[in-house]
């Protein structure tokens, strides 16, 4: 099964080990994974800020890089949501292009969704050990229906226990550029999320979207908590990934 890995711009820049973790998980599951080197961003930051052209330009690029794959997988509900739900409305004037894009979108999956729903994977022990609490990122949850998948995958890791937090489905306040434009509100929302997460007693906050994780981690650290780990679900499932640099 030939899979194209869409690393996503945030993972590319901020946490490459998430990309490698996703790569490892897919390869362990028997996929032939290719990471197209000319990929960039899904276009969501600009699209959600009102620049439709960002969405169109990056949808074209996405199509160019990924059209040849049987499946495309991204370690992000947010980017996958952009592709699956919003690419569908970008080219009303060019039905042929839109149709190609729609066909590609329908083969694009969020990582945990792909591992469970498509591959029905049996995971190897990643060696991860700790108590996790899972934050449901908004796009994954509400645009893609990602809810049970990451939980069932975490449950396969012998050393991982899941402690649900109160209101795991409430937004953490990231919201892309919202987190900068309306930073006061974003901070308050992140505060609330951190409090709910910590109250679960978990030592690791896990999520499926790096944006949320950076927001939550940044808030935790500012609150003076250097200990609680904030990890992408792929890191928990694949285990510690050495990084260089």
């Amino acid at each position: 099964m030939k899979v194209g890995l869409f690393v996503t711009c945030l993972v590319d820049m901020m946490r490459p080990r998430i990309g490698f973790a996703a790569l490892k998980l897919l390869e362990q599951a028997g996929c032939t994974v290719v990471v197209p080197q000319q990929q960039t961003c899904c276009g969501q930051p600009g699209f959600n800020s009102g620049d439709r052209e960002s969405g169109r330009a990056m949808a074209r690029r996405f199509l160019k890089e990924f059209e040849g794959f049987e499946y495309v997988v991204a370690p992000s509900g947010s980017c996958t949501g952009m592709i699956r739900c919003h690419y569908a409305e970008l080219f009303p004037e060019d039905p042929a292009l839109q149709a190609r894009l729609d066909a590609l979108s329908s083969r694009t999956y969020e990582l945990t969704q792909f591992l469970t729903d498509v591959l029905q994977v049996k995971l190897a022990d990643s060696g991860f050990s700790g108590t996790c609490t899972y934050h449901d990122s908004c796009s994954g949850l509400r645009e893609l229906g990602v809810k049970q998948q990451p939980r069932s995958l975490i449950a396969q890791i012998p050393g991982a226990q899941l402690h649900e937090m109160d209101k795991p489905e409430v937004c953490c306040g990231f919201g892309g550029t919202f987190s900068v434009k309306l930073g006061d509100i974003a901070t308050r929302m992140a505060d609330n999320k951190c409090q709910d997460a910590l109250a679960s007693g978990a030592d690791t906050i896990v999520g499926g979207d790096l944006g949320c994780l950076l927001n939550i981690e940044g808030c935790l650290r500012r609150l003076g908590d250097p200990r609680t780990r904030v990890l992408h679900v792929a890191e928990v499932l694949a285990g510690p990934e050495p990084e260089e640099g």
């Binding site: 901020m14 946490r15 490459p16 006061d184 927001n215 981690e217 940044g218 808030c219």
Partner: peptide, 11 residues
């Protein structure tokens, strides 16, 4: 102003 920004972890 309200949160730290975790730095990129690598290249």
């Amino acid at each position: 102003e309200g949160r730290d920004m975790p730095a990129p972890s690598s290249r």
